[in-house]
Write a protein that binds this DNA or RNA. Structure first.
Length: 281
DNA sequence: ATATATCCCTGCGCGC
DNA sequence: TGCGCGCAGGGATATA
């Protein structure tokens, strides 16, 4: 997806555009997403007003004054945009259209249909099937060096896919896992348990990477656009992601790539050595 | 329990 | 220009 920075950018855009607005109509053009959109979806939303737009992990939570919450995930190719009703014609893959009283539309668009649209009730954040097993938010204080170090000790596999495990920490996907590891100078194939002593640097690197991406409005490679239908800019700041065969900006060494658990990984062999460098005396 | 593989779905870029 | 192939920001599930 959209990883945490893209979802957060979408959240902020939606919040400023739709907070306080009443939903006057809902059209579900396709219900067969990653899981079916509930049959009660349109009826439940219609007539309610949006009180807040929150984010948990890569999920958007849209609070309604009825006590219901619209739970949405953008999957790999989803976007949630706000636009004027006048002149709008649904495009292919515009699956859900939410019409607001101010004559604007919230449009959920998702070519690959890996996204989710669901309804839950206030207070179900801790028990909902899709939310209950999520790890800590990387930008909150419970994602601490101590916590990360403890988690890493039980993981024997390479660190990169471990960082993408949403049970360990949420929001880090395939792009930002590679970028964060570059930032703290750690090779993506290093066994996770050996990196427990590096947890403080890793926490800092993950946070810095995500914050910088949020500040740039996220990354746009193909499908992703924010709530105002504009792409992000952070893709221009990638240090390693998608740069295999190109020189490292820091040392000119050629960036390498490999696969971890079916996902592409990128790193600089010089800045992220597989073996610890000998300490100078 | 943890770690890979597979699948869900559509679109795009590339090599031929 | 057309076609087949591999790959793509996620994640649930099935196997070892």
């Amino acid at each position: 997806m959209p990883e945490l920075p893209e979802v957060e950018t979408t959240r902020r855009g939606l919040l400023s555009a739709v907070k306080g607005q009443q939903i006057v109509a809902v059209t579900v053009r396709r219900h067969d997403l990653r899981q079916p959109i509930p049959k009660t979806f349109a009826k439940t939303l219609t007539g309610t007003s949006i009180t807040n737009v929150r984010r948990r992990a890569k999920y958007l939570l849209i609070d309604l004054d009825s006590g219901h919450i619209l739970l949405s995930h953008l999957g790999m190719s989803g976007s949630f945009t706000v636009r004027k009703k006048a002149g709008y014609r649904p495009k292919t893959h515009d699956h859900v259209i939410i019409e607001l009283k101010n004559s604007k539309l919230m449009v959920f668009h998702d070519p690959r249909r890996f996204g989710v649209m669901d309804i839950m009730k206030k207070g179900e954040e801790a028990t909902h099937l899709l939310l209950k097993n999520l790890g800590p938010e990387p930008l909150e204080k419970d994602f601490s060096p101590r916590y990360l170090a403890e988690q890493l000790t039980r993981r024997k596999g390479p660190i990169k896919p471990v960082l993408m495990d949403q049970k360990l920490v949420v929001g880090v996907g395939n792009i930002y896992a590679s970028e964060a590891l570059y930032l703290c100078g750690l090779h993506p194939s290093l066994p996770a348990h050996k990196l427990a002593p590096k947890a403080p640097e890793m926490v800092n690197a993950i946070r810095a990477t995500l914050r910088a991406a949020i500040a740039s409005g996220g990354s746009t490679l193909r499908d992703y656009v924010g709530a105002s239908n504009e792409g992000g800019y952070f893709q221009h700041e990638f240090k390693v992601y998608g740069r295999d065969g190109e020189p490292c900006f820091a040392c000119s060494t050629i960036i390498e790539t490999c696969t971890h658990a079916g996902r592409s990984t990128y790193w600089c062999p010089q800045c992220q050595p597989i073996r610890a460098k000998a300490q100078k005396h």
